[in-house]
Amino acid sequence: MAAEAEQPGPPGAPHSEDFVYSEDEFILHGAGWRSEPAPPGYMLSRFDRALQEGWKHRMELGLFRYHLGELETRVLPGPMQLVAQLNVQRGTEKRKSQAIHSVTQPFNPQEFNFTQIRPGEVLFRMRRSPACPPAAGCPQLDYVLVVINVSPLELGHVLLLPEPTLHLPQVLTPELLRFGLDAVLLSAHPGFRVGFNSLGAFASVNHLHLHGFYLGWPLLVESAPAEPLSPAPGLFFLRGVPAPGFLFYSQGAGLDALARDVCRAADHLLRRGVAYNVLVTRGEPPRGEPPRAGGARAGLRVLLWARRAALGPGAQAALPVALCELAGHLPVAAAPAFRGLTEAEALGAIRQHLLPEPQLEQLRGDLARLLAP
Rank of each mutant, 00 (worst) to 15 (best):
1 M>K: 09
5 A>T: 12
13 A>L: 14
13 A>Y: 09
14 P>W: 09
19 F>W: 11
20 V>Q: 12
22 S>C: 01
27 I>V: 15
28 L>S: 07
28 L>V: 13
28 L>T: 14
29 H>V: 13
33 W>Y: 09
38 A>Y: 13
38 A>K: 13
46 R>Y: 02
47 F>P: 08
51 L>I: 11
54 G>H: 06
59 M>Q: 15
59 M>P: 05
67 H>R: 15
67 H>P: 04
83 V>Q: 07
84 A>S: 11
84 A>E: 12
87 N>E: 05
89 Q>D: 15
89 Q>Y: 12
91 G>D: 08
92 T>N: 10
97 S>A: 15
103 V>I: 05
105 Q>T: 09
117 I>P: 03
122 V>P: 08
124 F>I: 09
124 F>S: 10
126 M>Q: 15
130 P>K: 05
131 A>V: 12
131 A>K: 14
134 P>T: 14
138 C>M: 03
139 P>V: 10
141 L>E: 15
143 Y>C: 14
145 L>S: 10
150 V>C: 12
152 P>L: 08
154 E>M: 14
154 E>N: 15
157 H>F: 11
159 L>G: 05
159 L>D: 06
159 L>N: 07
160 L>N: 01
166 L>S: 11
166 L>N: 10
168 L>D: 09
175 E>P: 06
176 L>K: 06
176 L>F: 02
177 L>C: 04
183 A>W: 10
183 A>F: 09
185 L>P: 09
193 R>K: 14
193 R>L: 15
196 F>W: 08
198 S>I: 09
201 A>V: 08
201 A>T: 09
202 F>A: 03
202 F>H: 08
203 A>E: 14
203 A>D: 13
206 N>P: 06
207 H>C: 06
211 H>C: 10
215 L>D: 12
217 W>Q: 14
221 V>A: 12
223 S>N: 09
223 S>H: 11
224 A>H: 08
230 S>A: 15
231 P>D: 01
232 A>S: 04
237 F>Q: 09
238 L>N: 07
241 V>D: 04
242 P>N: 11
243 A>W: 06
247 L>K: 08
249 Y>E: 02
252 G>R: 03
253 A>V: 10
255 L>P: 01
257 A>K: 05
261 D>F: 03
263 C>N: 03
263 C>H: 02
266 A>P: 07
267 D>W: 04
274 V>T: 15
275 A>G: 00
276 Y>K: 02
282 R>C: 00
289 E>S: 14
289 E>W: 08
298 A>P: 02
299 G>Y: 05
302 V>S: 02
308 R>Q: 13
309 A>Q: 02
310 A>T: 14
312 G>C: 03
315 A>D: 08
315 A>M: 08
316 Q>M: 10
317 A>K: 12
317 A>W: 10
319 L>D: 13
325 E>P: 04
326 L>I: 03
327 A>Q: 04
329 H>R: 11
330 L>T: 01
330 L>E: 04
331 P>R: 02
331 P>Q: 04
332 V>S: 06
335 A>W: 00
336 P>S: 13
340 G>C: 06
341 L>S: 00
343 E>L: 00
344 A>F: 00
350 I>A: 02
351 R>S: 03
352 Q>L: 13
356 P>W: 00
363 L>K: 00
363 L>E: 00
367 L>N: 08
372 A>C: 00
372 A>W: 00
